[in-house]
């Protein structure tokens, strides 16, 4: 087996590994540690240039309550929820159906439609910036949670359809054929036979799409502005004051904003990894 597992290496090498590992970990986590440390500093510490030293005072409770009472972080978080949850539900609903259609039915242009879904994934989304902004403006959806969610649903459906179609393809065709022989209607086959079997794929995709959308910064800044519609990733910047950049509050806000996807990742870690590898090997 390559690489040789560490427990089968020599004792000296094992010791080296064990001492090097914590160092490497701290080095990798240094930026995160800095953010966490900054989030409990006082504003005075930051002005005095004390970025890495021991904080002169610990303002854990003060900073974290400040961001909710003195800044619109709460409404930014709520906007993120209002964008992310409908996107996850909408994308999964659409891609389950389109995946089912593309995997089960043989019709003219099946491959063409499928390739279009796949090709959509290869379009760099930055080039869509101006047309999509104009489109949402003309539809009256600019600067609204609905507009942002609709765009995410449309864009994520491509990838999810590819994923779902391949997953359904790997299910035994005999299940569907047997049901058809029994005279079960097509939509009942989808609902009662295929959908329950797709649960692992749905779970995996839900976790994946949730983190994608929650962490999206680009479209949040392009399609929304202001506390009434902007998600937290884009809203963090406005925690700064007119003159003074309140890095301690921005850091605290970043940590709060990062909690939901991190929590989801740890709770559903199994599905997340499955989502990345599902369909990768036959």
């Amino acid at each position: 087996m390559f690489p040789t597992p560490i427990e089968r290496r020599s004792a000296a090498l094992q010791r080296m590994y064990k001492t090097a590992l914590p160092f490497a970990m701290i080095l990798w986590l240094l930026p995160l540690i800095a953010v966490a440390l900054t989030s409990i500093r006082s504003a005075g510490d930051i002005t005095a240039g004390n970025y890495w030293g021991w904080p002169t005072s610990f303002n854990l409770i003060q900073n974290y309550s400040d961001i909710f009472t003195n800044t619109p972080l709460g409404s930014y978080m709520w906007n993120s929820v209002r964008v992310t949850i409908p996107t996850v539900i909408g994308t999964l609903a659409l891609s389950c159906m389109s995946g089912f259609a593309l995997a089960v039915y043989k019709f003219k242009g099946n491959m063409l439609v499928f390739f279009m879904f796949v090709a959509g994934n290869f379009v760099p989304f930055q080039i869509l910036m101006v047309p999509v902004r104009d489109l949402t403006l003309q539809m009256g959806l600019y600067n609204s949670v609905t507009g942002l969610a609709l765009f995410h649903i449309a864009f994520q459906t491509g990838f999810c359809t590819l994923f779902m179609r391949n997953f359904i393809r790997s299910l035994p065709v005999e299940l569907i054929e047997a049901a058809r022989v029994e005279g079960v209607k097509e939509w009942r086959i989808f609902w009662f036979i295929i959908l329950p079997l797709m649960r692992p794929a749905i779970a995996a995709l839900a976790v994946l799409v949730f983190t994608f959308i929650w962490n999206d910064y680009f479209w949040a800044t392009v399609l929304t502005q202001g506390a009434e519609s902007q998600p937290v990733t884009a809203g963090l910047y406005s925690l700064n004051g007119q003159w003074v950049a309140a890095w301690h509050l921005v850091s605290a806000g970043s940590i709060v904003a990062a909690l939901p996807p991190v929590a989801i990742f740890f709770l559903l870690q199994k599905h997340f990894i499955a989502g990345l590898t599902l369909g990768a090997v036959k």
């Binding site: 006082s42 504003a43 005075g44 510490d45 002005t47 005095a48 007119q242 003159w243 003074v244």
Partner: peptide
């Protein structure tokens, strides 16, 4: 600088 510099300077001690 403008007078807004005073507040952070005081905060810094």
């Amino acid at each position: 600088m403008g007078n807004f510099a005073v507040a952070p300077l005081r905060e810094a001690g």
